[in-house]
């Protein structure tokens, strides 16, 4: 069993209205050094698999099929840890 994190982000070419609104709010708060905000999502999966590589393949398939829309989003999979039962 492995824990995976899928990071889904908008492709660089896609405008991010929510990120822009957050950036505006940060500027209003005085954080002028923050020059760009892009908002994505992080999805945690617990995956039954024998190896980290196998878990990664499963997470990538899930991302391609459902979790990310590759027309407008990119995704990255990270296997964070092996889960032990007991």
């Amino acid at each position: 069993m492995f824990k995976a994190r899928v990071y889904v982000t908008l492709k660089p070419s896609i405008l991010d209205p929510k990120g822009k609104a957050a950036q505006g709010a940060l500027h209003n708060l005085g954080y002028h050094k923050i020059k760009s905000v892009r908002i994505g999502k992080m999805i945690e999966l617990d995956i039954e698999a024998d190896t980290a590589a196998e878990a990664k393949v499963a997470a990538e398939m899930a991302s391609r099929k459902l979790l990310a829309n590759e027309v407008m989003e990119d995704f990255e999979v990270e296997i964070t840890k092996e889960l032990h039962h007991g």
């Binding site: 896609i14 405008l15 209205p17 929510k18 609104a21 829309n69 027309v71 407008m72």
Partner: peptide, 17 residues
Amino acid sequence: LLEAGLLPGAMLPNEHL
């Protein structure tokens, strides 16, 4: 229909949110 791939492209939140 976009998500199902019957039509091309994708939908984003309205620009003005």
